[in-house]
Every structure is written in structure tokens, then in C-alpha cells.
Simulated scan of single mutants.
Amino acid sequence: MEKLYDLWAKRNPKWEKKFETPIIEEFANYRYGSGASAERRAKVYGGGYEIFIIAFFIGLYSKQTRALNENPDKVTDFGQPIQYWGNVGNRGNRKEYSKLREYMFAALIARTDIDFLALDKGEITPKKAVDILISKMEEYANYGFYVLNDLQEETPDYFFQNDAFFKVINRIVSPKTTDTNEEIVPPPLD
């Protein structure tokens, strides 16, 4: 029997087409390849899936999800299964990030409601379990895309800072508390 990770890695998560132009094409070499060509076109990321990963972590660290549009004409995918995300072959000094895929999978296992005893007993199929994992992954990323899109609309040049994406994630994972410990208040984006 194939491992759950391998089944998950063969999948190609979906995202809302509305983010293609303002986010994916703006920051990644979506449909043009990756590598050194990204620098020549002044893109932050190579493959479109790289900005999907950022959006996923924004949703994950925020502990927020947002369902994809139910209209199948309004969603798409990158045409590249997760198992190939970050594989670099002979592309200069780029690093492969297979561990990142493993961490994403582990986070999904931890944050997704799957009855693993039922899976082990055969009461639910591995395909059904992977469907649940992919759905959660898409929902985290979709939330992250909305966050990125809102920031892009509010401050159009915000992401032209070298550390802009880091600041977005850092604001989520390192919130400051008020003196009275009432609520967690994220620091403002600079």
C-alpha cells in the first residue's frame, strides 16, 4: 500500500484564479519557469507554487482557513504535483526543499481532523484522507492569498521591500501582547 505522504505529494492543490494576476503573476514566474530567469524578470519567486507555499503558511500560522470558491471555473492549479515542488535538478545554486514539503505535510496531519483509527481499520480510504488534507491545505493557502491581496491593495509597493514576506509571517508568529495581557496584538506592518 502506498504511503499517505506519497498519495498527498502526487496531488496538485487548487487556488482561486482571482489571485493569478495581482499575486501569483506579480511575484512569481508563473508559466515562465524558475531559476535565474526569475531575477532577470525581477520576480521574488520562481514557480507559482512558491507563493502558494507562502500563502499556506500565512493561513497555517494564523490558524485561519477560507474555503475556495465552489465554482470550478473560478479555481485552477499549477499543473505540477506537490512532489515536484522545489526540485531543482541542475539549476545553479538553488537549494531543493523536500524537507519543506515534509513539514507542510506534518502540519496538515497535526491540524486536520482525520480519524486515523478509521483509516487504519479501512473505514475510510487513503484517498478520502488525502482529499481532506488537500482541502485543508487549499483553505489555508486561500486565506493567505486574501491576506496578501489585501496588503497589496492597501499598500501597492509594500512587497517591493526585501523582507516584506518575512515581515508578514513574522507579524503572525511573533505577536506582541499588551501590558494587561488582554489580547494578542500583532505589530503593524512597516
Rank of each mutant, 00 (worst) to 15 (best):
P13T: 06
L119P: 02
S62K: 10
K10P: 06
N87D: 10
N142P: 07
R41L: 09
Y143Q: 08
T112D: 06
I134Q: 12
D131S: 13
N90P: 00
I53E: 09
G144S: 07
T21D: 04
N29T: 07
T125W: 05
G79H: 11
Q161K: 12
Q80G: 15
N90C: 04
K3N: 13
V185E: 14
E138S: 07
L133Q: 09
G92N: 03
E139M: 11
L133Y: 07
T76D: 05
T177S: 11
K95R: 14
K74D: 13
D190Y: 14
T65V: 12
N90Y: 02
Q80I: 15
A36W: 00
K176C: 09
V44G: 03
E183R: 15
P186W: 13
D6S: 12
F160Y: 12
Q161Y: 11
L108S: 08
L119A: 00
E16Y: 04
F166E: 13
Y30T: 01
A118C: 00
L60P: 04
N29V: 04
A106N: 14
A38M: 01
A107E: 14
E182F: 15
T76M: 04
F165D: 09
A106R: 13
A129Y: 03
N142S: 11
N87H: 07
P156N: 01
E96W: 03
Q64W: 11
K63L: 08
R31V: 11
K121A: 04
G33W: 01
L4W: 01
